[in-house]
Write a protein that binds this DNA or RNA. Structure first.
Lengths: 338, 338
DNA sequence: TTGAAAGCGCTAACAG
DNA sequence: CTGTTAGCGCTTTCAA
């Protein structure tokens, strides 16, 4: 049996309250007594029981992070940022993967069923009514990551995607002379995909153009899928002023690979741009023009917000908006080395 | 204040013991009583307090995973596998990043200080005496991941790296005719790097050759660093029968990029092989011949072992050995499409 | 089959 | 400055 506060108290000839005070840095303890207690603690190797502590304090110092998936650099970086921030704020981080399409019930169960969590950050990328409803039921502080829940009751971290996508599109259109866009996104319900697509149309509209519905594809954010699509269709896409806008770098890389395989020169015969600026963006040929999404900062901000909220439940909900940044490389006409 | 077991008991006109029994699936409860209690539970939205529960049961159903770093696909996949398995075994997963070079004290502190963890899986990639010592002190079940701690007191998951690296080298030497190897690894103390380097020398020895110390480089597993090295040195490396063995795919990709930039044809003028079979291996030009390391299974196995251990503290330590698999693509001579 | 009661280890009034 | 004591919410003998 582990050593308890009572063992320490006996050893140091004090009461358990005194030991408790010493442990909790209460400087309410006489220096000599404190020294004696600390000695006892060290000699015995005493560590406070986290359950008993939590039972009194109602805090576990553990927060959760729910992501749609754990696959790929995007989520991995979010986790990394979240983890660093959690540690910084004195919390541990538990990771969840939602995975199940629109059925958020398992998630909710996982979270609701006797959990020690002090709070939870949820990344929402398919925002349905159901999701809203589920989030409303979570019996602890919630921070919503990337879901554009205006006026929702929760603290909220959003990426100003629109801004980044518009900057990218303006570059593509004005600096690179794109006229016909081919849009390759994720699911139609995916909030990121929607924002990027809207931006695409908006900027096209600015020059009096639109996108042909036949030039819009909804895939799954994967390299292979995009590669396959590219292999099939790319010959239809070639042309001066034509540009593929893939909603993430992996798909863009897939298109680029398909282009290479087909002997198509990028950006001369076809421009390609991506989104996110994950590592792969620097590894493609040519390197990808893309938009840098501050992935790890997204994770970090969400956790920061969450920990602040846990510390002050009365504070009005806050929204943090992170801005992406255009990264110009060589896949779309203007060969400005970065 | 949340609803407690007492509230339920009152509502259902039973004692708290009965509620407790119902909750814990004890079929020791009369069907009618149980129904009444369950109704009360649902009406009140009762969820057992995890702290109180843990205080009695001494279990949090949370396990930890300590990784050297959280950067990159390798660790990300380990987390993914670990997370899936944890969930499967009924646990939550807390992720730690050790990060600090050889100073494992912070880690130990983080873990020892009042933690709720039921156990912990630690990935050890720089195995020093200090590490051993630290691990011995962790006051909970420990599974060591990838550290070749023979006869250590802990359960252990290892990758049979040697086997994979030897298979790769045999392919490179016998099928592709490599004679001069250029080895690009991580730190000299890194256990993976050591194993791969040893295998390299072993197979070279089998054909009566050795590696020139000047052809051995210790970098940091990063794309950029390898790219820079390649840019500087690659002209010295060209030659029939010459082959770069990078200790991970990212570095191999960096070399490949440097080769492309220098107009060097791979594998005709220089062969390149990697290790891990991360996503990037399929995205390079040409695609990389490499060794597939079962990353997510590593994470899963570690957690599985850990959960089993938690369930039975008496069981003798077990070791799980995972085998990597040679993946032949096009970067080293034999263009067998995979 | 159910209830009463004894803690699990700790924190926080409240006294002294 | 220190000790006494009353819980926190739950599981689990032990009796009934």
């Amino acid at each position: 049996m582990a050593v308890s506060i009572l063992d320490v108290a006996k050893r140091a000839n004090v009461s358990i309250s005194t030991v408790s005070r010493v442990v909790n840095r209460s400087e309410l303890v006489n220096a000599k007594t404190r020294a004696r207690v600390e000695t006892a603690i060290n000699e015995l190797g005493y560590r406070p029981n986290a359950f008993a502590r939590g039972l009194m304090l109602r805090r576990s110092e553990i927060v959760g992070l729910v992501l749609p998936d754990l696959h790929g650099e995007f989520y991995s970086e979010i986790i990394r940022g979240a983890n660093i921030q959690a540690r910084e704020s004195g919390y541990n981080l538990v990771v969840f993967s939602a995975r199940d399409r629109d059925d958020s019930q398992p998630l909710l169960n996982a979270i609701q069923r006797r959990t020690l969590l002090d709070g939870i950050a949820v990344m929402v990328s398919e925002l349905t009514d159901r999701t809203q409803e589920v989030l409303a039921q979570v019996p602890m502080p919630v921070v919503v990551l990337d879901g554009d829940v205006n006026g929702g009751p929760h603290d909220n971290v959003v990426i100003n995607q629109r801004e980044g996508a518009v900057a990218l599109m303006r570059h593509v259109v004005h600096a690179c002379g794109a006229r016909r866009m081919l849009f390759i996104g994720g699911l139609e319900t995916n909030v990121d995909t929607i924002a990027r697509y809207e931006a695409c149309r908006q900027v096209l509209a600015e020059i009096g153009r639109d996108i042909d519905p036949a030039d819009v594809f909804h895939l799954d954010y994967e390299y292979e899928t995009a590669y396959n699509l590219g292999t099939q269709r790319i010959s239809d896409w070639i042309g001066d002023g034509n540009c593929v806008f893939a909603a993430n770098d992996e798909m863009a890389a897939g298109i680029l690979a398909a282009a290479n395989a087909a002997g198509i020169a990028v950006p001369q015969q076809l421009a390609v741009v991506g989104f996110d600026d994950t590592r792969v963006a620097r590894m493609t040929h040519p390197p990808l023009t893309t938009v840098r999404v501050p992935m790890s900062r997204m994770g970090a901000s969400a956790i920061e917000l969450l920990c602040e909220r846990i510390g002050d439940m009365e504070r009005p909900p806050r929204r943090v908006s992170l801005s992406p940044e255009l990264v110009i490389r060589e896949s779309c006409g203007h060969a400005l080395r970065v």
